[in-house]
Amino acid sequence: MVSAPLPWLNGPLQQALRQRSHALLIHGPAGVGQYEFGFELARALLCEATGEGVQRPCGRCTACHLMDTHGHPDFRLLLPEALREPLGWPDEEGRKKDAKPSKWIRIEEVRQAIDWTHQSLSRGVAKVLLIHPATAMQEASANALLKTLEEPAPQVRLLLTTTDPELLLPTIRSRCQRLALPLPTREAALAWLQERGIAQPAVLLDAAGGRPLEAQALASEGIDADSWSALPQRLRQGDAGAVAQWPLPRLLETLLKLCHDLMAVAAGGAPRYFPAEALPPGAALPALAAWSRELTQLSRHDEHPWNAPLLAESLVAQAAALWPGKPASAGRGRLTTLGR
């Protein structure tokens, strides 16, 4: 059996190796391991182990070692600058250290990768181009890839990842065979998190919506089960220190989760992200609905150059005002001016 770096990807990896499609669109929920799957599939496709019944990737051949050190000449990765460091890839040469890393895959990078696919094989097995995530290609970049997707050079395999295929151009989708990556079972996800020393993994797994890699990311950011469970009460008390160091996207995502759970409880349902006992009662459903709309609107502009500390304080004040007896936030209704 082929061994994937994430145990719940074993089945999909074997399926992909059987398909032998020249262009594969790998999709599934965020936090399930699209990048890890794409990289491990590339390792398997480039593995040089031989013999009947051999497992690929073998982890022992020269090709596997080259992949592990990010030095295989027949593997190329297209990745936004903003994801290079988190995924363990060095910054590209020429990027200014003080420049904000781009969230996009530039058309020049796509064209260079296309030229690379037409060059001769270095090790005689295959060439693999991994694009993660494919939604980081803007329309011009995606259109530049169409001909290569339709008529790739011999022995070239193209792997594209996404959390939602519908966000890609129809012309991209139609040229790829799809492979869905499901969420792992709760038991498998909890076992994996426990193996990594994460205490009370069930709390963080719920906080991440059942996505184990996202739960691991929360833990790596210093958000443990106790601090997550204490967060609703601290926000009710207007304690901005609870989230003072959080990046704005993480803060907005968390407040939307809290709002969802408070609305669910107010409507007689069960929370999804926070323990039920951690949610202070009494928040009114109409106020929660209005807050949800405001948070959703703000989350669409999280790249705006906000004054992050002031915005965080305003958001915490809004949260505190949801419960009876709490004064309305002085900053409410002025969110669009705080960063200017």
Rank of each mutant, 00 (worst) to 15 (best):
P5F: 04
L6E: 09
P7M: 13
L9V: 05
L13N: 04
L13F: 02
Q14L: 09
A16W: 03
R18H: 09
R20C: 06
A23T: 12
I26C: 02
V32P: 05
V32Y: 13
Q34T: 01
L45E: 11
L46A: 07
C47Y: 14
A49E: 10
A49Q: 13
T50M: 05
E52K: 15
G53N: 12
Q55I: 15
P57I: 10
C58V: 10
C61V: 12
H65V: 09
M67D: 05
T69L: 08
G71T: 11
F75D: 10
L77H: 12
L78G: 08
D98H: 13
I105P: 13
R106H: 14
R106S: 09
E109A: 12
R111V: 06
Q112V: 07
A113F: 01
I114H: 09
I114P: 02
T117M: 10
H118D: 07
Q119V: 11
Q119Y: 08
S120G: 06
S120C: 01
G124E: 07
A134G: 04
T135A: 15
T135I: 02
M137E: 07
E139D: 08
S141V: 01
A142Y: 00
A142V: 01
A144E: 05
A144C: 06
L145R: 04
L149A: 08
E150W: 03
E151D: 14
A153D: 05
R157D: 00
L158T: 06
L159A: 01
L159Q: 00
P165R: 05
T171I: 14
Q177V: 06
L181M: 03
P182M: 06
R186I: 03
A188F: 02
A189K: 12
A189D: 10
L190F: 01
W192K: 08
W192A: 09
E195G: 15
E195N: 13
R196S: 10
G197F: 03
Q200T: 11
L204T: 08
D206A: 13
A207Q: 07
E214T: 11
E221R: 15
G222Q: 13
A225M: 06
P232I: 03
G238T: 09
D239Y: 02
D239M: 01
A240C: 06
A240M: 03
P249E: 00
R250M: 11
L255G: 00
L258N: 09
L258D: 09
M263H: 06
V265Q: 15
A267M: 14
G268D: 04
G269Q: 11
R272S: 15
P275W: 15
A276E: 14
A276R: 15
E277Q: 09
A278F: 02
L279I: 07
P280Q: 07
L288S: 11
A290S: 13
A290H: 00
A290T: 05
W291D: 02
E294N: 10
E303Q: 10
N307E: 14
A308L: 14
L310R: 14
L315Q: 06
Q318N: 14
A321S: 13
L322E: 11
W323C: 11
P324Y: 07
G325A: 12
K326F: 04
K326P: 03
A328L: 14
A328V: 11
G331R: 12
G333P: 04
R334N: 04
T336F: 04
R340T: 08
